[in-house]
Amino acid sequence: MSILSGILVLAGLALLFGLILGFAAIRFKVESDPLVDQIDEILPQTQCGQCGYPGCRPYAEAIANGDDINKCPPGGEATIQKLSDLTGREAKPLDAAHGVEDVKKVAYIREDECIGCTKCIQACPVDAIMGANRQMHTVIADECTGCDLCVEPCPVDCIDMLPVTTKPERWRWQLDSIPVTVVDATQALPEQKAEPKEEHSGSQV
């Protein structure tokens, strides 16, 4: 008797909980997962394709479906860290197969060499190159993401990727990047400008 009642009690309890769970599963269903949007938010939107996907959004979708999070060189370690925080996956070092982290660059068209073929305009993923057929083209520097996709199609190799120049108001307080100049003490003070000789940057921070 007690054997049977034991089985019945447990089965009854299980039945009850099963009913509750079945109810909850339908009633409290969470709508679609916005994970892709969150990942896309983190990616640097250079649209460079170095990850192997045509643009940041496709890569975001791939990550959401389980692809590695370390394939974005423009984002670098910082992006990998953020993706790791978001997805809970391990933050692996950047996959060198997709390129290495580099300084921010911007495309610059040497205008006297440009033949106006529009190939770069078609290659630019963010429409940051202005120009028309047989007209000299130019890059809108503020809109350029530095993806360098325009470099390869150029038949005359007139596009350079130049590092973005720092302005004082966007300087990042890297004191050790200031070259220490060794000057002749006798020349430093009078008005004639001493020719500074660059030496090791032995600054203290």
């Binding site: 089965a11 079945g22 109810f23």
Partner: peptide
């Protein structure tokens, strides 16, 4: 859904 889950869980128990 409730019926299915309830019965399966009860069977296991």
């Amino acid at each position: 859904s409730m019926k299915r889950n309830g019965i399966i869980l009860a069977a296991f128990a």
